[in-house]
Amino acid sequence: MARRRQIYEGKAKILYEGPEPGTLIQYFKDDATAFNAQKKGTISGKGVLNNRISEHIFTLLGLIGVPTHFIRRLNMREQLIRQVEIIPIEVVVRNVAAGSISTRLGIEEGTQLPRTIIEYYYKDDALGDPMITDEHIAAFGWAGQEEMHDIADLAIRVNDFLCGLFAGIGIRLIDFKLEFGRVWDNDYPRIILADEISPDGCRLWDMQTNEKLDKDRFRRDLGGEVEAYQEVARRLGLLPEGADGAVLDLEKHRLSKGK
């Protein structure tokens, strides 16, 4: 596909104008960042794996009625998506204490939380994505009350589904990040799931060993980042056993509909 005009470049993805009005092409990079981009690096093949994993999860979510921006995967690194007006809020869903909540509240990592917790963060790299409350969101008009109800409901639905999906392949879903956007249907705004769901934005621990199968391997200098992402893809049935990570030729092995 011929390269189109670049619309936006983030830490892990690039957005290009799509082939039709209201669409974009989402390109997955190998770049890795942590701690609000204070730490930077590259995980070879990460973009290919995240593209495939996110496609798989978004497709499954669509089948259970969760509205998403995903249309179809175009190739190893690109997806066709709906253009949305991004809500400037990162939604973090926590099932088990890890990362910042352990630091803030002094809870030992790995502690099962008494209930699922949803946290909101304002999307602003310059400010370090500060935590915010519903009051901030309402006061500054980032999203309406009905929209926030929809966001919370969708976040819980996604969490319930993902917990079951990952438990079925021996993975504990510790926490994960979601982003949402608005689409307009006959002048009426509707909230849909956007961005991606992959080991970049999820904490995924092996149920037996607690081995980390996510970007914490990069954040904490544990090594084995590519192998961890590959393991998630293998367990999801997206990468054959023994596949060579240097090539990651998922085009030959993909299980998706279409091409």
Rank of each mutant, 00 (worst) to 15 (best):
M1A: 10
Y16H: 07
E17C: 03
E20K: 14
G22K: 09
Q26Y: 07
K29G: 07
D31M: 02
D31I: 08
A34G: 12
F35S: 13
F35Y: 15
Q38D: 15
K40C: 14
G41A: 13
I43K: 04
S44H: 14
K46I: 07
V48D: 08
L49I: 09
L49W: 02
R52Q: 14
E55A: 15
T59I: 05
L60W: 01
G62L: 02
V66Y: 08
P67A: 12
T68R: 10
H69R: 12
R72V: 11
R73D: 05
R77E: 05
Q79F: 08
L80M: 13
L80A: 07
I81P: 06
R82F: 03
Q83S: 10
I86T: 15
I87C: 02
E90M: 11
E90W: 02
V93Y: 05
V93T: 10
V96Q: 01
V96R: 04
S100A: 11
R104Q: 13
L105Y: 15
L105N: 13
E109N: 14
L113Y: 02
L113Q: 07
L113N: 05
D124M: 02
D125M: 10
D129N: 14
E135P: 06
A139W: 10
F140E: 03
W142A: 04
G144M: 07
E147C: 09
H149C: 05
I156A: 02
R157F: 09
F161P: 11
L162Y: 06
G168N: 13
R172S: 10
R172W: 01
I174Y: 02
D175L: 10
F176C: 09
F180H: 03
R182A: 08
A194E: 05
I197A: 01
S198W: 00
G201M: 01
D206N: 12
Q208G: 04
T209K: 07
T209L: 07
T209F: 09
L213K: 06
L213T: 10
R219N: 06
E225D: 08
A228M: 00
Q230R: 00
R234G: 04
R235W: 03
P240D: 08
A246E: 13
D249Q: 14
